[in-house]
């Protein structure tokens, strides 16, 4: 596990990405969000002017970030699994523009002392925004390195004061047939779940941006989960409800094929998916496959969560 020391300059500022989106959306959204130029300072105005997605900031670096080479912005935003917008990797980038990410609220409810609804703009200010450069391992055998922007899910959950009886957390995502697929590919709305201790783990992130900017729709705007030691599908996109429960919640892929996608779905090179090996992965942009690491390389941080558990049975 490579841990980068926090530094003052964020890697995403050192490596600016190619910018191609239109300026009008920037002008429209800019009023709703803060641009780094205003809050964090130090961004050349020319760059801000040609920038499509608004900058998020100020951001603090995280000791959990990896120093591995980041997957280019273009690949991160054009090669997506977001089945509500189509099942080809290129579909979400083409279709997710229809999703309106304002107004947006997230209801946090269930076994909580103070359940309530949060507005997305309030969430953006709820806790200091961090940049977290995480590995993402998809169950299909490919991986990326993505600089997310967000804060630990624990910061939000603490606000609603989970009850002692809360054991799990369920994440329900938006399903809007007006802009999304009407095909019953999965049991919409897409739902995911974590054990409460997994949800409270400092690595578990609520992300609102990537590459220092507001999350593109195809990546799960305006707010998504990022659980870096689990296969990508556990990290639910475009979340509308977070529910504390006492029972293990049903999850979308598990309902679709329960022998293939377990509740835990921790990255594990020793437990193969019935249809493909999980021993290796192709990092997007690389030619040769590389070995997959236990817990996606986060074993040091999370292995203790699963002490004594049979990870083959609890796949």
């Amino acid at each position: 596990m490579l841990i980068q020391r926090p530094s003052d300059i964020l890697p995403s500022e050192i490596t600016p990405r190619a910018r191609f989106e239109d300026r009008r959306r920037f002008l429209r959204d800019a009023g709703l969000l803060f641009a780094a130029g205003a809050l964090g300072g130090a961004l050349p105005s020319a760059e801000a002017a040609t920038n499509a997605a608004p900058k998020l900031g100020p951001l603090t670096a995280s000791p959990f970030s990896t120093s591995e080479e980041k997957t280019p912005y273009k690949a991160v935003t054009t090669y997506n699994n977001y089945y509500e917008f189509g099942t080809d990797k290129s579909d979400p980038a083409e279709n997710a523009g229809r999703l309106a990410t304002r107004p947006w609220t997230v209801r946090v409810e269930g076994f909580a002392g103070k359940p309530r609804t949060f507005d997305i703009d309030e969430l953006l200010r709820l806790a200091p925004l961090e940049e977290r450069i995480y590995r993402l391992r998809c169950v299909e055998g490919w991986s990326m390195v993505i600089p997310w922007v967000g804060f630990p899910l624990a910061s939000l959950l603490k606000q609603v004061e989970p009850l002692g009886s809360a054991k799990y957390v369920e994440f329900v995502t938006l399903y809007d047939p007006k802009v999304m697929s009407r095909l019953p590919v999965l049991d919409w709305p897409y739902a995911e779940g974590l054990r409460l201790d997994e949800a409270m783990h400092p690595l578990t992130l609520l992300a609102m941006g990537l590459y220092g900017e507001v999350l593109p729709n195809q990546n799960g705007a305006p707010i998504r989960l990022v659980v870096p030691w689990k296969y990508g599908f556990k990290s639910a996109k475009s979340i509308v409800t977070i529910r504390l429960t006492d029972k293990q919640p049903a999850t979308a892929w598990n309902k679709a094929a329960k022998h293939e996608y377990g509740f835990y779905s921790n990255v594990n090179p020793q437990v193969d998916h019935p249809r493909w090996s999980q021993a290796t992965e192709r990092r997007i942009g690389e030619f040769r496959k590389r070995p997959t690491l236990m817990f996606n390389g986060y074993a040091e941080q999370v292995a203790s969560l699963y002490q004594g558990m049979d990870l083959r049975a609890n796949f």
Partner: peptide
């Protein structure tokens, strides 16, 4: 697979 014959044989036998 880059000529990883073990992985290929495994795939042929194990992946329907």
């Amino acid at each position: 697979q880059f000529f990883d014959w073990m992985a290929i044989a495994h795939d042929i036998l194990k992946r329907p």
